[in-house]
């Protein structure tokens, strides 16, 4: 059995420091979504952070919900699923400094080097969603929408959603405050077997760039 942890938000430094790679985490409190649309707007476009964001949440979810505006003006949140985080690497150092965010949730983790150089030094860790399609379970964990910012400008998928959540999960701890990465550790184990899979298979007649990095090479 994998260890299970329930965290109240905003998460304290002690709680974050005690998280172990591969533990299963559930969250209670407020999480906010932000991805390239929000990052660009605030870090490059000069927009200000929403008032009260820093006090209410230190969890950034790389997520676009399946949401719709109901006739009564409330939001109907159906499924909630993360998007791949590695694409947002370039924004993160500035973002963590600006928002005091301590937990990043997303799909697939970030390059292991980023944990050592960006997240861990700022007291932040990365949680990954599970299987990546647990939209219904995560949707159940969303109790309501506290606020939504830049919905008109960025659209449903890119807007900043503030979700009030309870038993929100499961997530797996991918990085710790030492900057270790579960994905990297597992990847290394998988890699040991990879070369042998190609044993005896002949090389392709025509190669592609990617198999050689030198664009001056002929591919035949």
């Amino acid at each position: 059995m994998l260890e299970q942890v329930s965290l109240d938000l905003p998460a304290t430094h002690e709680a974050i420091a005690s998280l172990k790679l591969g533990s299963v985490v559930y969250l209670n409190g407020i999480v906010y979504t932000a991805r390239e649309g929000v990052y660009d707007r605030i870090l490059n476009g000069g927009s200000q952070l929403p008032e009260g964001l820093i006090a209410s949440s230190n969890v950034n979810f790389h997520c676009s919900p399946a949401a719709a505006l109901q006739d009564d003006g409330k939001y109907h949140i159906g499924g909630v699923t993360a998007t791949a985080s590695f694409r947002f690497s370039k924004y993160l150092a500035k973002w963590l400094d600006l928002t005091n965010t301590k937990i990043i949730i997303g799909k697939g983790g970030m390059p292991a080097a980023d944990y050592k150089s960006i997240l861990a030094p700022r007291g932040a860790v990365y949680l990954t969603t599970v299987g990546y399609g647990t939209g219904a379970l995560l949707g159940r964990g969303v109790q309501g929408v506290e606020a939504v910012h830049w919905l008109d400008e960025l659209g449903i998928a890119q807007a900043m959603w503030m979700f009030r959540v309870k038993d929100f999960g499961p997530f797996l701890v991918d990085s710790d405050l030492q900057g270790n990465s579960l994905f990297a550790q597992q990847g290394e184990l998988v890699n040991k077997n990879i070369e042998s899979l190609y044993n005896g298979l002949k090389a392709p007649a025509l190669h592609r760039y990617g198999e050689t990095r030198d664009r001056k090479d002929e591919l035949m």
Binding site: G79, G133, G135, L137, L138, G139
Partner: peptide, 20 residues
Amino acid sequence: TMVKNYEAATEDRRPMCADT
């Protein structure tokens, strides 16, 4: 966990994955 997620989707009538 995925199998639990399918069950939750069908019970709640909500999308199994938000990336539809």
